[in-house]
Nucleic acid binder design. Sequence first.
RNA 1: GCCGACGUAGCUCAAUACGGCAGAGCAACUCACUUGUAAUGAGUAGGUUAAGGGUUCAAGUCCCUUCGUCGGCUCCA
Length: 604
Amino acid sequence: MSESEQQEKYQESELYRIRHSAAHVMAQAVLELMPEGKYTIGPAIENGFYYDFDLPRNLTPEDLTQIEKRMRQIIAGNHPFVRKVVSAEEARQIFKDQPYKLELIDGLEQGQFDEDGNPLESKPEISIYSDDTFTDLCRGPHVETTRQINPSAIKLMSVAGAYWRGDEKNKMLQRIYGTAWKTPKELEQYLWQLEEAKKRDHRKLGKELEIFFFDDEVGPGLPLWLPRGAVMIEELEALAKEVEHDGGYDRVRTPHVTKEDLFIRSGHLPYYAESMYPPMELEGVKYYVKPMNCPMHHKIFGSLPRSYRDMPVRLAEYGTCYRYEKSGELFGLMRVRSMQMNDAHIYCSEEQFEEEFMAVIGLYLRYFEIFGVDKYVMRFSTHHKNGLGKKYIDNERLWLKTEDMVRRAMDNGHVPYVEVPDEAAFYGPKIDVQIWSAIGREFTLATNQVDFAVPARFDLKFINAKGEEEVPLCIHRAPLSTHERFIGFLIEHFAGNFPVWLSPEQVRLIPITDGQNETVKAMAKRLSALNIRASVDVSSSRMNAKIRQAQLFKIPYMLVIGEREMNEGTVSLRKRDGSRQDDLALDNFIEMVQDKIKSRSREI
RNA sequence: GCCGACGUAGCUCAAUACGGCAGAGCAACUCACUUGUAAUGAGUAGGUUAAGGGUUCAAGUCCCUUCGUCGGCUCCA
């Protein structure tokens, strides 16, 4: 099912009507509290609803409690929702004191926008819905009466700022988020899910598991990786190198700063100057810290004469980039200012495009298999002709041609995707892979873009079989995203219980008394020599405390060694999941662990 | 960047809707205990309450500024 089909199905559902109706009830309650307030739009969304208001003062948490209470009273009144079709003139009369509604009516009348501000295909009829004392400009649908909203299954969640019509040039409104379900049990379930998600939050676990942290003095969005995090980074890089070696990639390395000219040539500067660190000037020349690697890879491609026999050329680099994300946009490891990208650029001819493109999709699938990602959507972002020459390179013919190539490749390869208009990169269409972690939180990680424009700006060419010069296409791809975002995802996806190969510490050896300390140290040394990440706990704590400690660090294997094991050369294996295997020969354990690591198994 | 909330020991949190001696658990350190699968006991140390300014006899608490984090909006090559 496509995203829009799912959307349609949701809009026809009872839950959607309940949530949309709850938004109206909430608006009534808010306006009773502040009658001079102006109301704008209030749609149902995933898991709930919101309503945006322009109010004379800021809402407080106490207000929310009051509003929620009043909502329950209104619901109990069992007021019917009454629909009425009106003319634009009548609507203007009804909402004469509501400037935002008047603006929406204009949009509806001209057939431009619906009452939620979304673009319209055709001119709709204008309808209003009333219940109790409240009337709203609204297409519906709603429940029949307020009673069909379960007063014990609604909850107001938070107040947030939101720009009118989502445009940062417009006024900032106050948005109240609420959630509504059919039964209190469903509400409870939803709240429980939120709690569970909090426990897996990568910011919390990242600190607890000593993976990374941020320091005020270093700067916002600039993570410091602790030894445990560095191990994970190196494992991911090893994986990428292996996979990219198989895929015929060559590794390259490029500097972190370059002259301004490079970004003028690439065309990035006018589009992205605001989110780049400002330039530094040396001997009259401006240098920028690089926000992406592509221009330098283009230079490497262009540094040698290329024949069709060399194509495709695949240049890979875990490049370190810096982007000046606006302060409010930073979010743990998911949105940072310094990052290392699993980057590569594939230069190919048009004939080679489909095969190369599908090979990249194949990489995604291979990674999904390794990490146990079973739900994903390929979002195919295309241009919109209104943006040509502004957001996008002004060459409609090439846009349509390239988008068609991508569409054909995905159709032929039976890759399910949804098309998202007007979200392409400036130089070409892109595919973002949206995935869901084990708890259903959504992430956009892997991405690739098809660039039909920038190679020409760099005069890139190869000599084709006919002996003519030809400009290559370039596929930008980053299946593992950035280390920052990907590890953030992995922490939440696995709740810190990483597969053995990725675990910062794979084995913890625990002596029962001091008498086993030397034996345990010798065992750890042996494991280390075999590249198994092992450590010993010879602290003065009791064994139980040591186990608890290892358990909290989510170390996959604990080896408990007492006098009996010491004498027999065995170990007592306790796994992270609590299972236990006694009298295991150390050699057998080693063999088992090596197998798990080598196969990158997700089982322990 | 914008709207709002928040910032107390390494971590988690206290400090009476209203200003009155800055506290606890865990972690750390010391000592004792030598233990069989998720916390042994006792003791010690740890703070310019994010930073700066103001009001007050008195500020963690009230006011202002800055920084940072969080919930959203906007943005994400």
